[in-house]
Design a protein around this nucleic acid. Structure first.
Length: 279
DNA sequence: CTGGTGACCTGCGGGC
DNA sequence: TGCCCGCAGGTCACCA
Protein backbone atom coordinates (compact mmCIF):
# COMPACT_ATOMS: atom_id res chain seq x y z
CA UNK A 1 0.00 0.00 0.00
CA UNK A 2 1.74 2.90 1.36
CA UNK A 3 4.54 4.74 -0.28
CA UNK A 4 5.24 8.41 0.23
CA UNK A 5 2.06 9.77 -1.44
CA UNK A 6 -0.17 7.43 0.55
CA UNK A 7 1.58 8.17 3.84
CA UNK A 8 1.45 11.91 3.16
CA UNK A 9 -2.26 11.55 2.33
CA UNK A 10 -2.81 9.87 5.69
CA UNK A 11 -0.84 12.64 7.39
CA UNK A 12 -3.02 15.30 5.79
CA UNK A 13 -6.26 13.52 6.55
CA UNK A 14 -5.22 13.29 10.20
CA UNK A 15 -5.66 17.07 10.43
CA UNK A 16 -9.04 16.70 12.18
CA UNK A 17 -7.31 15.30 15.26
CA UNK A 18 -4.91 18.21 15.69
CA UNK A 19 -5.80 19.94 18.94
CA UNK A 20 -7.78 16.96 20.21
CA UNK A 21 -6.98 15.39 23.56
CA UNK A 22 -6.24 11.68 23.85
CA UNK A 23 -8.20 10.31 26.79
CA UNK A 24 -7.25 6.66 26.48
CA UNK A 25 -5.01 4.23 24.66
CA UNK A 26 -5.68 0.55 24.25
CA UNK A 27 -3.29 -1.73 22.41
CA UNK A 28 -2.30 -5.35 22.13
CA UNK A 29 1.23 -6.60 22.60
CA UNK A 30 1.04 -8.01 19.12
CA UNK A 31 4.24 -8.79 17.23
CA UNK A 32 4.61 -6.55 14.21
CA UNK A 33 7.50 -6.48 11.78
CA UNK A 34 10.52 -8.61 12.78
CA UNK A 35 8.86 -9.57 16.02
CA UNK A 36 8.86 -6.05 17.41
CA UNK A 37 5.87 -5.81 19.70
CA UNK A 38 3.61 -2.91 20.41
CA UNK A 39 4.32 -1.64 23.93
CA UNK A 40 0.94 -0.48 25.27
CA UNK A 41 2.42 1.09 28.41
CA UNK A 42 4.90 3.15 26.40
CA UNK A 43 2.14 4.33 24.05
CA UNK A 44 0.05 5.33 27.04
CA UNK A 45 2.92 7.25 28.63
CA UNK A 46 3.54 9.06 25.35
CA UNK A 47 0.00 10.03 24.48
CA UNK A 48 -2.64 9.43 27.16
CA UNK A 49 -4.05 12.69 28.48
CA UNK A 50 -2.14 14.79 25.96
CA UNK A 51 -3.23 17.02 23.09
CA UNK A 52 -2.07 16.09 19.58
CA UNK A 53 -0.14 19.10 18.37
CA UNK A 54 1.53 17.92 15.18
CA UNK A 55 1.79 15.00 12.76
CA UNK A 56 4.91 14.86 10.59
CA UNK A 57 6.16 12.46 7.94
CA UNK A 58 9.69 11.19 7.33
CA UNK A 59 9.83 9.03 4.23
CA UNK A 60 7.14 6.44 4.89
CA UNK A 61 7.01 7.05 8.67
CA UNK A 62 4.39 9.11 10.49
CA UNK A 63 5.41 10.93 13.68
CA UNK A 64 2.80 12.16 16.13
CA UNK A 65 3.75 14.87 18.59
CA UNK A 66 1.85 15.67 21.77
CA UNK A 67 1.83 18.99 23.60
CA UNK A 68 4.06 18.95 26.65
CA UNK A 69 5.35 15.40 26.08
CA UNK A 70 8.94 14.54 25.33
CA UNK A 71 7.95 11.29 23.63
CA UNK A 72 6.05 10.91 20.36
CA UNK A 73 4.40 8.02 18.55
CA UNK A 74 5.93 6.56 15.40
CA UNK A 75 3.81 4.66 12.87
CA UNK A 76 4.79 2.78 9.72
CA UNK A 77 2.00 1.24 7.66
CA UNK A 78 3.99 -1.63 6.17
CA UNK A 79 1.99 -3.16 3.31
CA UNK A 80 -1.52 -3.30 4.74
CA UNK A 81 -1.51 -0.86 7.65
CA UNK A 82 -4.33 1.64 8.14
CA UNK A 83 -4.59 4.60 10.46
CA UNK A 84 -8.17 5.85 10.60
CA UNK A 85 -10.12 8.44 12.53
CA UNK A 86 -13.61 7.09 13.13
CA UNK A 87 -16.74 8.35 14.90
CA UNK A 88 -17.89 6.74 18.14
CA UNK A 89 -19.29 3.27 17.64
CA UNK A 90 -17.95 2.74 14.11
CA UNK A 91 -17.26 -0.91 13.26
CA UNK A 92 -13.61 -1.76 13.60
CA UNK A 93 -11.41 -3.10 10.86
CA UNK A 94 -10.22 -6.66 11.37
CA UNK A 95 -6.72 -6.87 12.90
CA UNK A 96 -6.99 -3.64 14.83
CA UNK A 97 -3.94 -3.54 17.10
CA UNK A 98 -4.04 -0.09 18.71
CA UNK A 99 -6.82 2.40 19.48
CA UNK A 100 -6.55 5.98 20.73
CA UNK A 101 -9.75 7.45 22.16
CA UNK A 102 -10.23 11.21 21.88
CA UNK A 103 -12.11 13.44 24.32
CA UNK A 104 -15.09 13.82 21.96
CA UNK A 105 -15.50 10.06 21.53
CA UNK A 106 -13.81 9.68 18.16
CA UNK A 107 -11.07 7.08 17.98
CA UNK A 108 -7.89 6.73 15.96
CA UNK A 109 -7.31 3.10 15.04
CA UNK A 110 -4.27 1.31 13.70
CA UNK A 111 -5.03 -1.93 11.86
CA UNK A 112 -2.64 -4.12 9.89
CA UNK A 113 -3.57 -7.65 8.77
CA UNK A 114 -0.10 -8.64 7.58
CA UNK A 115 1.62 -6.98 10.55
CA UNK A 116 4.50 -5.60 8.51
CA UNK A 117 3.92 -2.19 10.04
CA UNK A 118 5.36 -0.57 13.15
CA UNK A 119 3.96 1.33 16.11
CA UNK A 120 6.56 2.62 18.54
CA UNK A 121 7.60 5.66 20.54
CA UNK A 122 10.48 8.03 19.89
CA UNK A 123 12.13 10.86 21.76
CA UNK A 124 11.03 14.33 20.71
CA UNK A 125 14.10 16.11 19.39
CA UNK A 126 15.95 12.79 19.25
CA UNK A 127 14.22 11.32 16.22
CA UNK A 128 17.50 10.12 14.73
CA UNK A 129 18.10 8.04 17.83
CA UNK A 130 15.25 5.73 16.83
CA UNK A 131 16.65 2.72 14.95
CA UNK A 132 14.00 2.96 12.22
CA UNK A 133 14.61 6.65 11.56
CA UNK A 134 18.38 6.71 12.01
CA UNK A 135 19.34 5.35 8.59
CA UNK A 136 16.79 7.27 6.46
CA UNK A 137 18.16 9.22 3.52
CA UNK A 138 16.78 12.45 2.10
CA UNK A 139 13.03 12.64 1.71
CA UNK A 140 11.98 11.94 -1.87
CA UNK A 141 9.65 14.94 -1.91
CA UNK A 142 11.01 17.37 0.68
CA UNK A 143 14.62 16.37 -0.15
CA UNK A 144 15.91 18.32 -1.85
CA UNK A 145 16.24 15.50 -4.36
CA UNK A 146 18.16 17.26 -7.11
CA UNK A 147 19.82 15.70 -10.13
CA UNK A 148 23.16 16.45 -8.50
CA UNK A 149 22.14 14.72 -5.26
CA UNK A 150 20.92 11.70 -7.20
CA UNK A 151 24.09 11.54 -9.25
CA UNK A 152 26.14 11.57 -6.06
CA UNK A 153 24.09 8.73 -4.56
CA UNK A 154 24.50 6.71 -7.76
CA UNK A 155 28.21 7.31 -8.20
CA UNK A 156 30.23 4.10 -8.21
CA UNK A 157 27.26 1.85 -7.52
CA UNK A 158 26.80 -1.24 -9.61
CA UNK A 159 23.27 -1.92 -8.47
CA UNK A 160 20.26 -1.40 -10.70
CA UNK A 161 18.99 2.16 -10.62
CA UNK A 162 15.59 0.89 -9.52
CA UNK A 163 17.15 -0.83 -6.50
CA UNK A 164 18.82 2.45 -5.60
CA UNK A 165 15.50 4.31 -5.75
CA UNK A 166 14.03 1.73 -3.36
CA UNK A 167 16.89 2.01 -0.86
CA UNK A 168 15.43 4.05 2.01
CA UNK A 169 18.95 4.80 3.30
CA UNK A 170 19.59 6.78 0.14
CA UNK A 171 16.17 8.25 -0.61
CA UNK A 172 13.24 7.87 1.78
CA UNK A 173 9.71 7.41 0.53
CA UNK A 174 9.87 5.70 -2.86
CA UNK A 175 8.36 2.22 -3.11
CA UNK A 176 7.78 -0.27 -5.88
CA UNK A 177 4.98 1.53 -7.71
CA UNK A 178 6.59 4.95 -7.91
CA UNK A 179 10.05 3.59 -8.67
CA UNK A 180 8.54 2.06 -11.82
CA UNK A 181 6.49 5.16 -12.61
CA UNK A 182 9.41 7.56 -12.16
CA UNK A 183 11.76 5.49 -14.34
CA UNK A 184 9.13 5.40 -17.08
CA UNK A 185 8.67 9.17 -16.88
CA UNK A 186 12.45 9.62 -17.12
CA UNK A 187 12.76 7.06 -19.98
CA UNK A 188 15.40 5.09 -18.06
CA UNK A 189 15.64 1.29 -17.93
CA UNK A 190 15.09 -0.03 -14.37
CA UNK A 191 18.11 -2.36 -14.66
CA UNK A 192 20.55 0.38 -15.69
CA UNK A 193 23.59 0.15 -13.39
CA UNK A 194 23.39 3.22 -11.18
CA UNK A 195 26.94 4.30 -12.02
CA UNK A 196 25.87 4.75 -15.64
CA UNK A 197 23.43 7.48 -14.70
CA UNK A 198 24.98 10.55 -16.31
CA UNK A 199 24.22 14.09 -15.24
CA UNK A 200 21.47 14.58 -17.74
CA UNK A 201 19.67 11.37 -16.86
CA UNK A 202 20.09 12.11 -13.15
CA UNK A 203 18.37 15.44 -13.62
CA UNK A 204 15.55 13.83 -15.57
CA UNK A 205 15.10 11.11 -12.98
CA UNK A 206 15.07 13.52 -10.03
CA UNK A 207 12.35 15.55 -11.74
CA UNK A 208 10.46 12.39 -12.66
CA UNK A 209 10.48 11.15 -9.06
CA UNK A 210 9.03 14.41 -7.82
CA UNK A 211 6.46 14.55 -10.61
CA UNK A 212 5.29 10.96 -10.06
CA UNK A 213 4.93 11.48 -6.31
CA UNK A 214 3.16 14.84 -6.73
CA UNK A 215 0.72 13.45 -9.29
CA UNK A 216 -0.18 10.56 -7.01
CA UNK A 217 -0.52 12.89 -4.04
CA UNK A 218 -2.91 15.07 -6.03
CA UNK A 219 -5.17 12.01 -6.37
CA UNK A 220 -4.94 10.96 -2.74
CA UNK A 221 -2.51 8.12 -3.51
CA UNK A 222 -2.91 4.70 -5.12
CA UNK A 223 -5.25 2.05 -3.74
CA UNK A 224 -4.46 -1.34 -5.22
CA UNK A 225 -6.35 -3.22 -2.56
CA UNK A 226 -6.04 -2.06 1.03
CA UNK A 227 -5.10 1.58 1.16
CA UNK A 228 -7.49 4.12 2.63
CA UNK A 229 -6.67 7.51 4.13
CA UNK A 230 -7.45 8.51 7.70
CA UNK A 231 -11.01 9.38 6.66
CA UNK A 232 -11.50 5.89 5.23
CA UNK A 233 -11.40 6.86 1.55
CA UNK A 234 -9.24 5.15 -1.09
CA UNK A 235 -6.96 7.08 -3.43
CA UNK A 236 -7.72 7.25 -7.14
CA UNK A 237 -4.25 7.32 -8.69
CA UNK A 238 -4.53 3.67 -9.68
CA UNK A 239 -6.58 4.89 -12.67
CA UNK A 240 -3.66 7.08 -13.74
CA UNK A 241 -0.72 4.69 -13.36
CA UNK A 242 1.25 4.67 -16.61
CA UNK A 243 3.29 1.51 -16.28
CA UNK A 244 2.85 -0.30 -12.95
CA UNK A 245 0.72 -3.43 -13.28
CA UNK A 246 0.19 -2.97 -17.02
CA UNK A 247 2.29 -5.76 -18.57
CA UNK A 248 1.25 -6.66 -22.11
CA UNK A 249 -0.38 -3.31 -22.79
CA UNK A 250 0.78 -0.63 -25.16
CA UNK A 251 3.21 1.93 -23.74
CA UNK A 252 1.19 5.09 -23.07
CA UNK A 253 3.93 7.45 -24.21
CA UNK A 254 2.91 9.55 -27.17
CA UNK A 255 4.64 8.27 -30.26
CA UNK A 256 5.96 5.07 -28.62
CA UNK A 257 4.69 1.79 -30.09
CA UNK A 258 6.30 -0.41 -27.43
CA UNK A 259 4.64 -3.02 -25.23
CA UNK A 260 5.06 -2.98 -21.45
CA UNK A 261 6.93 -5.94 -19.97
CA UNK A 262 7.17 -7.29 -16.46
CA UNK A 263 10.56 -8.37 -15.10
CA UNK A 264 11.99 -8.78 -11.61
CA UNK A 265 14.61 -6.69 -9.85
CA UNK A 266 15.58 -7.83 -6.36
CA UNK A 267 12.57 -10.07 -6.42
CA UNK A 268 10.13 -7.21 -6.93
CA UNK A 269 7.78 -6.98 -9.89
CA UNK A 270 9.18 -4.38 -12.27
CA UNK A 271 7.35 -2.84 -15.21
CA UNK A 272 8.91 -0.94 -18.06
CA UNK A 273 8.74 -0.30 -21.79
CA UNK A 274 11.82 -1.78 -23.52
CA UNK A 275 11.30 0.53 -26.48
CA UNK A 276 11.42 3.95 -24.84
CA UNK A 277 13.29 2.86 -21.69
CA UNK A 278 16.08 1.09 -23.57
CA UNK A 279 18.98 2.43 -21.47
C1' DC B 1 31.97 -2.68 2.33
C1' DT B 2 28.39 -4.29 -1.62
C1' DG B 3 24.54 -6.62 -3.59
C1' DG B 4 21.20 -10.49 -3.91
C1' DT B 5 17.86 -13.75 -1.73
C1' DG B 6 14.49 -15.22 1.37
C1' DA B 7 11.67 -14.61 5.53
C1' DC B 8 8.16 -12.38 7.84
C1' DC B 9 2.33 -12.36 7.61
C1' DT B 10 -2.64 -12.51 5.82
C1' DG B 11 -5.87 -12.43 2.13
C1' DC B 12 -7.36 -12.49 -2.48
C1' DG B 13 -7.94 -13.82 -7.28
C1' DG B 14 -7.17 -17.17 -10.91
C1' DG B 15 -6.93 -21.77 -12.63
C1' DC B 16 -8.31 -26.31 -12.35
C1' DT C 1 -18.12 -25.20 -5.05
C1' DG C 2 -13.48 -25.71 -3.21
C1' DC C 3 -8.59 -26.24 -3.12
C1' DC C 4 -3.97 -24.82 -4.31
C1' DC C 5 -0.85 -21.61 -6.04
C1' DG C 6 1.13 -17.25 -6.82
C1' DC C 7 1.26 -12.71 -5.64
C1' DA C 8 0.85 -8.11 -2.96
C1' DG C 9 2.23 -1.15 -1.56
C1' DG C 10 7.74 -3.04 2.97
C1' DT C 11 11.75 -4.04 5.63
C1' DC C 12 15.40 -6.66 7.58
C1' DA C 13 18.69 -10.63 8.52
C1' DC C 14 21.80 -13.22 6.41
C1' DC C 15 24.67 -14.92 2.88
C1' DA C 16 28.50 -14.71 -0.71
Amino acid sequence: MPELPEVETVRRTLAPILGARVTGVSAHRVALHMGRRIDPAALRRASAGAVVDRVDRWGKYLLWYFAGRDTGVLVHLGMTGRLRVVPPGAPRDPHTHAVWTLADGRTVRFSDPRRFGLVDVFGRGAERAHPSLAPLGIDALDGPLTGRALARLAAGSGQAIKALLLDQRKIAGIGNIYACEALWRARIAPALPARELDGERAGRLARAVRAALRAALDHGGTSLRDFVNAAGNPGSYRDHLRIYGRAGRRCPRRGCRGTIVRTAIQGRATFHCPTCQAT
